[in-house]
Amino acid sequence: MSKILVVDDSNSIRDMVSFTLKSSGYQTVEAQDGQDGLSKAQTGTFDLVITDVNMPNMDGITLCQELRKLASFQYTPILMLTTESSTDMKQRGKAAGATGWLVKPFNPDKLLATIKRVVR
């Protein structure tokens, strides 16, 4: 089953995303910020990374850039969780190597439907 890395500094959002994914049979690993996410990413391979943008220590954009430098994450789908639906944020995400974005607020069904576009 696909393994997904969930990076968000908000416990509730992280729990909610993780819970939703698990309830659909995905395996998840949680990280509380970009720094944590990066170190957890190095512990194995993932089929998808879902990360918040605004986080302390290391933001999602930087995380994305760092992940793309790792051989095992070169082509891994990376989705940004963001409330900023402006094109600016999308461009920055894309430039950093993000695969796509999820605009908050989203409900669990939408989350599941959306990630199907990048993960089996």
Partner: peptide, 13 residues
């Protein structure tokens, strides 16, 4: 960041 997180979470819930 704090405002942003509250907004995002509130929408989700």
């Amino acid at each position: 960041r704090a405002a942003h997180s509250i907004k995002g979470g509130a929408g989700t819930f």
